[in-house]
Design a protein around this nucleic acid. Structure first.
Lengths: 255, 255
DNA sequence: TGATGTGAACAGATTCACAGCC
DNA sequence: GGCTGTGAATCTGTTCACATCA
């Protein structure tokens, strides 16, 4: 699944791991994260299909176009409600509306980006955000050479003024694209101002209170997985699957 | 998971799904992808710890620093071999070496990046790649305004010359940061030149032969998941978990 | 008839809990 | 005594297969 930071339920605590984990906060209409992650893919695919003038589509066709299994598509959609017609398929326009509503791209999510190095700037410019209902309301960076410049029409403000800026623009989500060393400090300040959803691109683990929703993106992660498989299946001599243990190595490197 | 493209084992085929899936190509020393994705995190954490002069660390401490559960850390490491000492912990230096060897950051992986818009440029500049054993050997873009410019010391070549460039630089992995409309064409050409590992940042599904390793990164995905949870737990009136179905809506929107 | 919606089987990943060893 | 390594239990996600219904 999603190689991504687990929700910090007990953070690093939960000292003993008592018999009952007890207090899940709320009913939380159970759509799995894995499904949520795919809904935008379906939506994008539907948009392309709608542009081609198609008005009805079956789960099989839509699944192919979106690159998933058709059973998976049907199960995903079934979490939202009963939007298809048996024997026929789905109405493209209607489904588009429903998915949009569900993932909240109907409303606009105000987002603040902290850190406008290469990555932060690329994220600010990334059109995928705008089309999915995210609107950048503020940009912060400590670098005087950047302060005052505009990116996508939003001026970069001084990181020192974070509290002001957050109070004025009320972002619902913060994106962190700062160096690892600065990430925890910025996070603490954001949390203190009431930001409750943070997406961390910095390569470091962050501590946040349980009520804050923190997720992490590691750009190198998928590349790493590819490299691993490349190493396994590659041309190099593949060692037959023996587990090497410490003494084996010590023997090998000793002498 | 990783919320990421499944390996195209049988692509969309496997017509009947017979009783035996049969031919898995090889033994494939079974380290789960989820573990592979975390190993670089451990390595980074160990590097920080080693810089602080620590020479031995327990699974609990390392897990806290890396932001994971200690049982998870131990299980992950156990896939590599038996590198710890019961009652003591892990030798930082030794573990660092072993993880590095396993994920192949010992060797250098030549990477080509196709598409040098904001995202491609940010990826080229991203230091996380260099430190994990990836070396950019070529950059391609069709934009005449970019061709010839250098990014991180590598000149941007004309996309039209893809075949030449691949033949000359022999990349093991290709990173696609092109618009969705161009992605399939570029992919086909890469595959035709023998590239067998592709990381796709373009927001579209790609078709590749089964022997090609394709993974996908969707930058908006994690943000989307955050927005969803924000919507659920947010201030807006939370509808008690009734599943809305088509007729409910039609009733509601009608009249 | 043909495609949805979904329980049940399966697969993968995480966490628990404890035996085994230093 | 303390910490690793790992089977077993659990949880999450995917796929199968078929009852159901337009």
């Amino acid at each position: 699944m999603t190689p991504s930071q687990p929700r910090p339920d007990g953070g690093g605590l939960d000292p003993q791991g008592g018999p009952m984990r007890s207090d899940r906060p709320v009913a939380e209409k159970g759509i799995p994260d894995a499904t949520i992650a795919r809904l935008p893919v379906y939506l994008r695919t539907l948009n392309v299909i709608a542009d081609e003038g198609v008005t009805t589509i079956s789960s099989g066709e839509l699944a192919d176009a979106a690159g998933v299994n058709s059973a998976q598509l049907r199960k995903d959609l079934s979490y939202l409600g009963t939007y298809g017609t048996r024997g026929v398929g789905y109405d493209v326009e209607y489904l588009r509306f429903q998915i949009g509503r569900e993932i909240g791209s109907a409303q606009e999510w105000p987002v603040i980006i902290v850190g406008l190095g290469n990555l932060g700037t690329a994220l600010a410019n990334y059109s995928g955000f705008g089309t999915r209902g995210f609107r950048i309301v503020a940009l912060l960076d400590p670098n005087p050479a950047l302060i005052g410049r505009e990116v996508v029409g939003v001026p970069i403000a001084d990181l020192a003024r974070l509290e002001d800026v957050v109070a004025r623009t009320s972002p619902r989500i913060a994106v962190l694209a700062v160096p690892a060393a600065a990430a925890q400090d910025v996070t603490d300040r954001l949390v203190a101002c009431g930001v409750r959803s943070i997406l961390n691109f910095a390569p470091t683990a962050l501590a946040v209170p349980a009520e804050v929703n923190l997720r992490k993106v590691d750009l190198g992660q998928e590349l790493q997985i590819l490299a691993y498989h490349e190493q396994q299946t590659g041309d190099s001599v593949v060692e037959p699957s023996i587990k090497i243990n410490k003494s084996t190595i010590e023997k090998a490197t000793a002498s």
